[in-house]
């Protein structure tokens, strides 16, 4: 209660002084630890999950990039391994002799 009263007073002072109401918003000066300084803007949630700003990410979509990278790395390894072994570069991994 006491904290909220102080906050209200500060907001009132800001309003009376003509300063923008966003004065108390995120400005990069309130750090929880080195390099961790973000804070939600007034009226916005600290976590968006469950809020009206929840992007509702689909885990299947989120995993697609990682899956693709793993497959590309595996194909590239087959290519470079065979190239180093044979001196012949074959792009199509299905055509690389086993």
């Amino acid at each position: 209660m006491k904290t909220s009263s102080i906050a209200a007073s500060l907001a009132l002072i800001a309003a009376l002084s003509g300063a923008p109401t966003a004065l108390l918003a995120y400005d990069g000066t309130q750090c929880k630890e080195p390099g961790v300084c973000w804070q939600p803007k007034p009226g916005y949630p600290e976590k968006v999950a469950g809020s009206k700003y929840d992007p509702k990410h689909d885990p299947k979509e989120l995993s697609k990039q990682g899956d693709s990278i793993a497959k590309m790395e595996a194909r590239n390894k087959q290519r470079s391994d065979y190239f180093k072994k044979s001196g012949k570069f074959v792009y199509d991994v299905d055509k690389i002799p086993k």
């Binding site: 630890e33 080195p34 390099g35 961790v36 973000w38 976590k47 968006v48 999950a49 992007p55 990410h57 885990p59 979509e61 989120l62 995993s63 990039q65 990682g66």
Partner: peptide, 22 residues
């Protein structure tokens, strides 16, 4: 330059959930 942040998976912790993957 420890003031910039160090180890400790900040590349995950400074995101919500799995948002760092995208």
């Amino acid at each position: 330059v420890p003031q910039y942040g160090g180890k400790g998976d900040l590349g995950v912790k400074t995101w919500e959930g799995d948002a760092w993957k995208i």
